[in-house]
Each structure stands twice: as C-alpha cells, then as structure tokens.
Simulated assay, not measured.
Amino acid sequence: MALNNCKECKKEVSTNAKTCPYCGINNPGVIDSNRRIGIVVLVVMICLGIFAFTKHERADYHQSEKVEISENKVAAVAKVKQVVNSRQSLSAHSLLMETVAEEASKIPEQSVLETLPKLPVIQELPKQATLEQQDNAENIYSADTSQTMVMHMLEYALNADGLSHESVLQETKLQIENLAKPEKGNKKAARVINLKGLAALKEGDFNKAVELFEKANKLDASDVEIINNLGFSYLKKGDFNAAQQVIISALTLSPGRTTAWENLGEVFGKKGEVNKALACFSNAYRFSKDRLTLHQYMKGRNQKEDDKRLKQAREKAINWAEKIYLNGSKNIQQQESVRHDLAASKK
C-alpha cells in the first residue's frame, strides 16, 4: 500500500483512502491533476518568457555594442585621418613657404637669360630635299616646344629663303601663336621701367639698359616688346649668344614679330653666320605688315653698317625682297616718292 501526504492536513494517509482519518477530506492522497498540469504549464511559460526576454535583451545589447564599436572605429579613423592631413598640410605649407622664400631670395640674382632653356643647334636643310624629307620635317615640329618650333622656322627659311617651305612657315607660326603664353603681370609698372631702359639705350648705356629690361620682364613676362628690347640690349652690348637666346624667346610669344626677326638677323650677322642672318631677314620681310617701310629701314641701316658680314647678309635680303615682294627697284622708287609726297603734303 502506497502512502502520500494528505493534500489538506499534510499527514501521511493511504493513496487509496477515500477520506482522511485526521481532517476528513475526500481523496486525501490524490493531488488534483488539473492543478498539477496548470502548475507545470505556468512554470514552463514563465521559463519561456524569461528566456525570450533575456535573449531579446542580449541581442539588443550586442547590436548596440556593435554599432557603438563601429561608430567608435569610424570616429577614430576620421580623427586619425584629420591629424594626418593636418600634419601633411602643415608640412606641405611649410615646404611651400620654404620653397617660395628660397625662390624669392634668388630672384634678384637671376636674369631672364638664366631662366631660358638651352636652344637646339640650327642646321640647314638640304637645298634639294625630297618630298618625303619635307613631309617628315613638317611632322617633326608638331611635338616640339615653342622655341624649337621657332628654330624650325629659321631652318625652313635657310632653304631658298623659305620660298619652298612657305606654307610650312605660316603653319608653324600659327601653331606657336596658339600655344600657352606666360600669365600677364603688372604691365603698367613694367612699361614705366621699359621707358627707362629705352632711354638708357639711347644714351648708349647698354649695361643699364639690360638691367632695366630684366626688371621690367620680371614684372610682366608676357610683354614681348620688353623681351625683344632686352635681346637688342644684349646685341648692342656685344653679348651675341645671350641676345640670340632672348630674341628667340621673344619670337615664341610673337613668331611674326618683324623687329625680332630683324634683330636676330643682326645677331647672326655679327657672329659671321651670313646664311642664318639672311634667313632671319627674309622672315622679317615675310611677316612684315609694311614691307616698304621695312625696306627703307634696311637700306638705311646698311648704308651705315661697318660689319662686312652683316652688311653682306642685309644686302642679299634687300635684293631678294625687291624681287619677291616689292616688284623691282623702279616700282620701289615710285612708291617711296609717293609716300614722300604724301608726308610732305601733311606737313
């Protein structure tokens, strides 16, 4: 016989007893099955609820922890980048300021001539170049620098005074004109110093003229007149190599500038390079907008010229221009007479 505690008084009774001998309750040894089941179900539900709640809470915690860690990482990386960039900026700024200071300290000691690249050697084209050679020569200058392109213009003019390369000369001139030019500076201040340089030239103080034109050029490197005046000052000073380099630099800004080609012709003439001088003079006539005035100037200069080689080159250019551009000496004399009469009537 099995014993169990009475469900009411909790004293031991038989599980088969119909009434408790102590308290008299019916079926004292049998526990209500529904009650037991309810208790079990309740316990299970409580456990499940606790588990679900803690699981959701843990998930939220881990998610928020991950977001916080991610945000912290992003903030940390951004801060590191900011620090690095600031240090780089400071370093770059410091380096830039040091470079500017260094370059600024060099400006008074540098001349325009020292900033120019070394010019290539000029070589004459063969007088009887084949069409293939000419085509190849035409294709070369397209990838060259502006100074080299100016040298090509001189090379083409060396061959029959450029008549066999007329179209190439004009095309090269246009290409140089389309290249990027130096930025404009303080033109007004530069021109004031330019006038002082011209006065020094007139007085024959060529060293002073060079100094003034260099200062003017530093104020406005885009002014071709100032650069050409500087080259002419070197020419008058007797520094022909410097004059050649600076005048060619002027032609990179204005490849059709007649005075620059004429000045370059004088440089080569003084150096004894008659053919190159003639080529420059022919380009001066070629690009001149007033060939008759240029012709009168060339004749006047040649009458006073003492250098035999320069005089020879200019004389050849004068005779060549009369045949090619000015339609003979008689026609020139008639044009000069008409111009003289017009000038006298205006007076």
Rank of each mutant, 00 (worst) to 15 (best):
Y285V: 03
G328Q: 01
K304V: 03
D306G: 01
K330T: 15
N327W: 00
G265Y: 10
E266W: 10
A317L: 03
L294C: 00
D290R: 05
S254M: 09
R257M: 07
K330C: 01
E273L: 13
K237D: 07
F281Y: 14
N283P: 05
M298E: 09
R286P: 03
I318A: 05
N302R: 02
Q335I: 04
L251N: 08
L251E: 13
S249L: 02
C280I: 04
A260E: 06
A321K: 01
N283T: 00
G272W: 06
N331M: 04
I324D: 04
S337P: 01
Q245P: 02
A260T: 08
S337D: 13
N241F: 07
Q334M: 04
E315D: 14
D307E: 10
L292G: 09
A321C: 05
Y234F: 14
Q333R: 08
R314M: 15
Q312R: 08
E336K: 02
C280Q: 04
M298Q: 13
Y234R: 13
N319K: 13
K270G: 09
T252N: 13
F240Q: 01
P255D: 08
L235C: 11
T259Q: 11
Y297M: 04
G272T: 07
C280W: 06
D290Y: 05
Q334D: 10
I332E: 02
V246P: 06
S254F: 09
A321M: 01
G269N: 11
L292I: 07
K270T: 12
W261E: 03
G300V: 02
K237Y: 15
A250Q: 09
F232I: 15
L310Q: 08
R257A: 08
A317W: 00
N263K: 14
Q335Y: 02
T252W: 12
Q303A: 10
G328W: 00
F287T: 00
K276W: 13
R301M: 10
Y234D: 11
Y234I: 11
D239I: 00
K237T: 13
E336R: 02
A313D: 04
K316V: 09
D307Y: 10
L264I: 04
G269Q: 06
R257E: 12
K270L: 13
N241C: 10
F268S: 04
L253I: 06
N331L: 02
A317T: 07
K316N: 11
A279N: 08
W261T: 08
A279T: 05
K276T: 15
Q335C: 05
I324P: 01
Q296E: 13
K330A: 09
Y285I: 07
H295N: 12
V246S: 07
A250Y: 12
Y297C: 01
K236Y: 11
Q244L: 06
Q296M: 01
G328A: 03
A313M: 05
S254Q: 14
K289S: 09
L251P: 14
K311I: 05
K271D: 05
Q296R: 10
N275C: 04
K299T: 03
E315M: 11
I318T: 03
K299R: 04
